Computed example of a mutant assay.
Amino acid sequence: MIQIAIFSDVHGNLPALEAVLKDIEQRGIHQKFCLGDLVDFAPWGNEVIERIKSLNTPCLMGNHDERIAFDIPVFPLSKHSQEETEARFIAIDHSKKYINAENKIFLSELPFHLKLNYKVGKRHWDIQLVHSSLTSNDTYLYESETDEVFLSMLEDSKADLIVMGHTHLSFQKQFENKKWAVNCGSVGRSKEENRLASYLILYLTEEKIIPEIIQLSYPIEEVIQKIKESEIPDYYASFLKNDNVLIL
């Protein structure tokens, strides 16, 4: 059996990332991948990038990574409240100022998606990794999407399983053809009610793929305090405390 760890959407939250990495290490999992969005909304953007670099962890380019790497303008999103819109502009501007030049280059060179092939016994498993979809790193695909949306992605990628992040909401869907679409959730800015750090373990046997969502506690009060001490808006501290009204 092969075990693979996949995580996404750290968003500058180093304590949450360390909790996930420690859990992966304790489980003896050697294969790990990140689906992107290393930066924005917590004050350890550079440190998170350096940690990923130090581990040589393959990482995709999330929409926030792309925005910071190439100084892409920020536009309001209709799903956000006025308060979140204002906070988002300030937080992203903070990253643009404080992510150093070397780390911006690293972000700019990240791949858009990755296709993996693992051989277990006589069986080859094809696993497609994306930040949000095959054609965009900024498409919101939720569990409520029709099966056809995910089946089309699986067909286009010729994969047995597709893993995504971006929405910060984990889910697992298996279809009649035994193929899977899985969202691994968010390490550092979960939108799930428990706000725990989330990641995915894939167990590959010759007969089947078994996905398991892992959710971990971490010193969230430390993160809240550090956000309050930084130039990042307190909105994101309140978000982690689950004080905000969540709008998907």
Rank of each mutant, 00 (worst) to 15 (best):
residue 50 E to I: 08
residue 51 R to E: 13
residue 53 K to P: 05
residue 53 K to W: 01
residue 55 L to D: 04
residue 56 N to H: 14
residue 61 M to E: 06
residue 62 G to F: 05
residue 62 G to E: 01
residue 63 N to H: 07
residue 65 D to S: 05
residue 71 D to R: 07
residue 73 P to N: 04
residue 74 V to L: 12
residue 75 F to V: 14
residue 76 P to S: 06
residue 76 P to N: 05
residue 78 S to R: 15
residue 79 K to W: 12
residue 79 K to I: 15
residue 82 Q to T: 13
residue 83 E to V: 02
residue 83 E to W: 08
residue 83 E to F: 00
residue 83 E to T: 10
residue 85 T to A: 06
residue 87 A to K: 01
residue 88 R to S: 14
residue 88 R to P: 02
residue 89 F to L: 14
residue 89 F to K: 15
residue 89 F to G: 05
residue 89 F to C: 08
residue 90 I to T: 06
residue 90 I to V: 15
residue 92 I to Y: 01
residue 94 H to K: 08
residue 96 K to H: 10
residue 100 N to W: 04
residue 100 N to S: 04
residue 101 A to C: 11
residue 102 E to T: 15
residue 105 I to T: 14
residue 105 I to D: 13
residue 106 F to A: 08
residue 107 L to S: 00
residue 109 E to V: 13
residue 110 L to K: 09
residue 111 P to D: 02
residue 113 H to E: 04
residue 114 L to N: 02
residue 114 L to D: 06
residue 114 L to C: 08
residue 114 L to G: 04
residue 114 L to I: 13
residue 115 K to N: 14
residue 117 N to S: 15
residue 118 Y to H: 05
residue 128 Q to Y: 00
residue 130 V to K: 02
residue 131 H to W: 00
residue 133 S to Q: 08
residue 133 S to C: 09
residue 134 L to Y: 06
residue 134 L to C: 07
residue 136 S to P: 10
residue 136 S to M: 09
residue 138 D to M: 11
residue 138 D to F: 10
residue 139 T to N: 09
residue 140 Y to H: 10
residue 141 L to K: 07
residue 141 L to M: 12
residue 142 Y to Q: 03
residue 143 E to G: 07
residue 143 E to S: 11
residue 146 T to K: 14
residue 148 E to N: 13
residue 151 L to K: 11
residue 154 L to W: 04
residue 154 L to T: 05
residue 155 E to M: 11
residue 158 K to W: 13
residue 159 A to T: 08
residue 161 L to T: 03
residue 161 L to A: 03
residue 162 I to A: 04
residue 166 H to L: 05
residue 166 H to D: 04
residue 167 T to V: 05
residue 168 H to Q: 01
residue 168 H to I: 09
residue 169 L to K: 11
residue 169 L to G: 07
